[in-house]
């Protein structure tokens, strides 16, 4: 279990390797024979048409879909058979396409939930407020306040999340993930449902955080401009298989990728 302070300096390597991953639902292959290496601290965009298997691949990495074949390794630890909650302790953490929060609680309490991945005292120390618990409570509150500040949501931290606009809720979910620095962050269309301003704000916030406290990141995104701006690597999927990898500019202009995305008629704008 991780045990370093402060929480924002946790994390570390974050080299994720997938070997011949296969996932299928009721006999239908959603992801087939995918082998990929995600290098530490690199932001990779995952693109492809609907039904290409992007979300399934993310679920397989985070433990929300069980892998039929192949292996998943993080910095030489094998994660393939671990349940999602245990993978989170290894530092593989995901966001949800539809933000999932504790609706009745405040933004600040939602962020605190993310401190689960930091070491905590035993239940007796917690219930009887022993010194170890007091220390970790101070540390967790500090870390939550810090991440709220860095993501620009301090002013709404005391408000119940149910009252907050969608863009802010997205940031609260991100803060819950980032309060203890992850090794691998998985995001499923983080900009979906945001307007142009919200998208820019989100990518800038993420990039600023990543620049100071880097981690490996895989992000599914349909917004091609956002992928070009934010990602330094790109992986294109179609029908469950990898069809192109490399520099985003390269991958997004690849004729096969364009065919998979837009069908046969390619119109150049």
């Amino acid at each position: 279990m991780p045990e370093v302070e402060p929480l924002s300096s946790m994390g570390g390597e974050g080299r994720l390797e997938l070997r011949q991953i296969g996932v299928s639902f009721g006999g239908v292959a959603a992801v087939r024979d995918v082998s990929l290496v995600f290098r530490p601290h690199v932001i990779t965009g995952l693109v492809g048409p609907n039904g290409a298997g992007k979300t399934t691949l993310l679920n397989a990495i985070s433990g929300f879909a069980s892998v039929e074949r192949g292996t998943i390794e993080l910095d030489r630890s094998e994660l393939t058979k671990l349940p999602a909650a245990q993978r989170a302790h290894y530092g593989v953490v995901r966001g949800f396409q539809t933000v999932r929060l504790l609706e009745g609680e405040t933004a600040f309490d939602n962020i605190l939930v993310g401190c689960e991945r930091a070491s905590q005292p035993n239940i007796f120390a917690q219930l009887f407020n022993l010194p170890a618990q007091r220390r970790s409570w101070r540390r967790d509150r500090g870390a939550a306040a810090e991440i709220a500040e860095r993501l620009g949501i301090s002013s709404v931290a005391h408000r119940p999340v149910a009252e907050l606009p969608f863009a802010t809720r997205r940031l609260v979910e991100l803060a819950r993930i980032l309060v203890v620095r992850p090794k691998v962050l998985l995001l499923d269309e983080p900009a979906a449902g945001l307007n142009a301003h919200g998208r820019r704000q989100l990518t800038e916030t993420l990039q600023a955080y990543h620049a100071v406290s880097p981690f490996t990141m895989i992000v599914i995104e349909h917004d091609v401009d956002l992928v070009r701006r934010m990602c330094s690597e790109c992986v294109a999927l179609a029908q469950g298989s990898v069809i192109a990898t490399g520099d985003p500019g390269h991958v997004l202009d690849d004729p096969e990728v364009r065919r998979a995305y837009f069908g046969d008629q390619v119109h150049h704008a």
Partner: peptide
């Protein structure tokens, strides 16, 4: 509180 409100979110943070 997390388990009450969302088991999916709970699992995702390692609860």
């Amino acid at each position: 509180l997390a388990v009450r409100d969302s088991e999916l979110a709970s699992a995702s943070v390692g609860i």
